[in-house]
Design a protein around this nucleic acid. Structure first.
Lengths: 245, 245
DNA sequence: GACGCGCCTTGACGCAGATCAAATGACAGG
DNA sequence: CCTGTCATTTGATCTGCGTCAAGGCGCGTC
């Protein structure tokens, strides 16, 4: 599935690598091919610190990264979870606004910012595609705000599971067979930073959902969902969870 | 200041009305002029309900609107605060994702969605401008997530005041003279929905900040800030509050 | 002036989740 | 096999904020 290598060709990533793929389909591929390059990161490695100069933009090819804000006293809030195909960086801004960290081994496809901006100015399709992606991210951020501001710890956990299941599903081409399962790509502490909780509360609520039969665990990270509707109900959303199935 | 009328010309709003103004400076103004129209709303009136068909996009000319999510049991979370010049709507999506409500009397400049999308496809500058604005909103949403997930009630109130002061300042052309003052355009309940608190907690924390001399009140809505650094400190941010001064 | 109606403030009390602390399990290296 | 490290779980206690309730203030209307 996520078997891209550092030398993956642009044309290999019709889904994962959208910022590039939008161009792959046109006759100007060669421009992007000339300016793109790949970077690998190890799990735990910081891609860029908040406030640093941001010399590139790019997108995740394989692995997972997070965006986090940190306060001086150490409180942390995750503000973005980047899965393969997600875009990183901000054309038109010189410095990073948050820490970007690889939480698994990760490969990014990067473009030096200036050439990318030049290309964007002459290739309307790129700005239109980026706008679409940014609007999606904004919607996700706003759903996340509802979670952070108004949901209980139990609802937050249930919501997180449905959100990650949904995003993993959208990366997979095939439909899931058998019982729905989710791999949580985060530690309890990272989940806590995602949800605005402490890691102890995350652990307790996962245990509680397990005890109540809403989910079952195999190991610490792998979850199966016997009854999706039950989980969606626990998530407290008024919507259907974005049509997960 | 905010004396635009329903018949305001596009060329009157170089700051407030950015989605239009991007075009005003070009030779294709007439296209936008042909498809734009104005809508007025009274304070409290709903512009559109979540889930409704969204036939238009537009931007706020005068007044203030909010975006809110509501759960079935009535819990509400504000996810956007729209001041003059802010864009509303989402090219490429058919239905609204959240409730849009006028909290003061408000005038919007609208475009039917289809013609606007057509224009966007042929006028690269519009998508580029919208991308820039959307990225700004995304940054604001992420700062808001930090507030919702990790700040104390007192810090939330202090942060809200600095955020609103900053945004009001950016709408004003002239520098503030004398002591910095802010008009809160929201009721205590709306502030609570903004901050993920209850209205009682909002009231208590505002009283506490007043008692401690961080702010002073004239009436319920008008705040003066004797010492901005003190307020920024109370807000708990590691940044400088976006260079308010 | 008296009334009603929003909006706001203040007080008393309870609880969800934070905090502090300790135990358990999973591994990797010696 | 032992040991150290790190992630996780679980328990005991504390506390910030929610909840419930009462009352104040400004303002328009009769």
């Amino acid at each position: 599935m996520q078997d891209h290598t550092v030398h993956v060709q642009c044309s290999d990533c019709p889904i994962r690598h959208r910022a590039v793929c939008a161009r792959c389909e046109s006759d100007e591929l060669s421009h992007l091919e000339q300016i793109k390059y790949y970077r690998s990161f190890q799990a735990g490695q910081t891609v860029i610190w908040s406030g640093d100069r941001m010399e590139f933009v790019g997108s995740v090819v394989t692995g997972i990264a997070t965006l986090t804000h940190t306060l001086e006293d150490g409180r942390r809030q995750m503000v973005g979870l980047l899965l393969p195909s997600d875009f990183v960086g901000r054309p038109g801004r010189a410095t990073a606004a948050y820490d970007v960290t690889a939480t698994t081994d990760m490969v990014m496809c990067c473009f030096r910012k200036k050439p990318f901006e030049d290309l964007m100015a002459t290739t309307p399709h790129i700005a239109q595609r980026l706008l679409e992606m940014t609007l999606d991210e904004l919607d996700a951020a706003r759903e996340w705000m509802l979670l952070l501001g108004r949901k209980t710890a139990r609802e937050k956990i249930a919501s997180m599971i449905t959100i990650i299941a949904r995003r993993e599903a959208s990366l997979r081409s095939r439909k899931p067979k058998g019982m729905l399962t989710v791999d949580l790509p985060l530690t309890r502490e990272e989940m806590a930073d995602y949800l605005g909780l402490t890691l102890e509360t995350v652990s307790r609520q996962i245990s509680a959902l397990k005890k109540d039969g809403v989910i079952s665990l195999e190991g610490n990270r792998h979850i199966s969902i016997p009854d999706l509707d039950r989980l969606l109900e626990e998530a407290g959303d008024d919507s259907d969870g974005g049509m997960l199935v």
